[in-house]
């Protein structure tokens, strides 16, 4: 595959997997938690690097999963102690992220894991770091990681579809029916962490948030069915990835920034023109209703 092809494939995979899990994310009202986890995974990755002195995918994923779980646990712990939910999130992720940055600045120096990279990702490097996969030949490591994560996340969502649905909609009833709500919560946090770090190499820590939240929010405005929302969300993620890459190529600017902005543009369009929940449609319906009253 060509250089550009790999980049587009990587970006599409990011959009797809983030979109999928993002749909559940916003329905569970965990957007800010995702914000927190995306920042905290930096610490997980840094520690994984410092311990193993390698930047291999497996270690990073482990470090990220651990950091994500730690974040969820700490936030829960603080909140149980009476700190407001939002404040708990704010304290935990900023502190963990700050520690991560300090570690990079002091211990890691200018190694491959420099701060800007950690933040912004550098998708242009992806095609160069390859690994050998039996049957497929040389493929970029990031692509392999993303494929695996996509399979795992997609599989978990499909397998436990109704459990995700009920724990997102009515956790009290779910608990009363015997479904392990707390377990699913922490499982979900782990899935987010793993997704975040898989996308990390491509779009960086902060932009993952855009990919997780915005396509899902856009999809939310187009449909009233969960299954459709999941698929649409993934599709929008892919669209944003393509659009962002195109824009970055034309404007000669940061690819990850462009992709994040592209998700915003998609959302804006949905916000305005979606026939079901868009602004224009609502105005028209209000007009029609008012018209009927008058006549």
């Amino acid at each position: 595959m060509s250089y550009d092809g790999w980049i587009l494939l990587t970006a599409s995979l990011v959009g797809l997997v983030c979109g999928l899990i993002g749909a559940l994310l916003i329905l569970r009202r965990m957007a800010m938690m995702a914000d927190a986890i995306s920042h905290s995974v930096l610490l997980g990755i840094v520690i994984a690097y410092l311990v193993t002195r390698e930047l291999s995918g497996a270690h990073m994923l482990l470090g990220a999963a651990a950091a994500g779980l730690l974040t969820a646990v700490l936030v829960q712990w603080l909140h149980a102690r009476g700190v407001q939910q939002e404040a708990s999130i704010g304290i935990v992720f900023t502190t963990l992220f700050a520690i991560g940055v300090v570690l990079i600045a002091t211990q890691v120096g200018n190694a491959h894991l420099d701060v800007q990279h950690a933040l912004m990702g550098e998708i242009t490097f992806i095609p160069w770091e390859t690994t050998r996969v039996p049957g497929l030949g040389e493929i970029p490591e990031a692509v392999l990681t993303l494929l695996i994560v996509l399979l795992v996340v997609g599989g978990l969502i499909a397998a436990f579809y109704k459990e995700w649905k009920i724990t997102s909609f009515d956790p009290a009833l779910a608990a009363a029916l015997g479904i392990p709500v707390a377990f699913m919560h922490y499982l979900f946090m782990t899935m987010i962490s793993v997704t975040a770090v898989a996308a990390f190499d491509a779009v960086g820590a902060v932009m993952v948030i855009a990919m997780l939240i915005t396509p899902a929010a856009a999809a939310y405005l187009w449909t009233d069915r969960l299954s459709v929302m999941l698929l649409l969300s993934g599709l929008f993620g892919v669209l944003a990835a393509f659009a962002g890459y195109a824009a970055a190529w034309v404007l000669d600017t940061s690819i990850s920034g462009s992709m994040a902005f592209a998700t915003g543009v998609l959302f804006l369009i949905s916000f305005l023109i979606s026939p079901r929940h868009g602004l224009a449609a609502r105005r028209l319906r209000a007009h029609a209703a008012a018209g009927r009253l008058k006549s």
């Binding site: 916003i26 009202r29 965990m30 957007a31 800010m32 995702a34 914000d35 912004m120 902060v206 932009m207 948030i209 855009a210 997780l212 939240i213 915005t214 929010a217 939310y220 405005l221 824009a247 970055a248 404007l251 600017t253 940061s254 990850s256 920034g257 462009s258 992709m259 994040a260 902005f261 998700t263 915003g264 959302f267 916000f271 929940h277 868009g278 602004l279 609502r282």
Partner: peptide, 26 residues
């Protein structure tokens, strides 16, 4: 204007504006 919840809205603004900022910065 619609059913998107507040935390989602904040997340959108946060990341999209920041993304734009990085684009312009670069």
């Amino acid at each position: 204007h619609n059913r998107v919840k507040e935390d989602t809205a904040m997340g959108i603004i946060l990341s999209v504006f920041f993304g734009l900022g990085i684009m312009l910065l670069t």
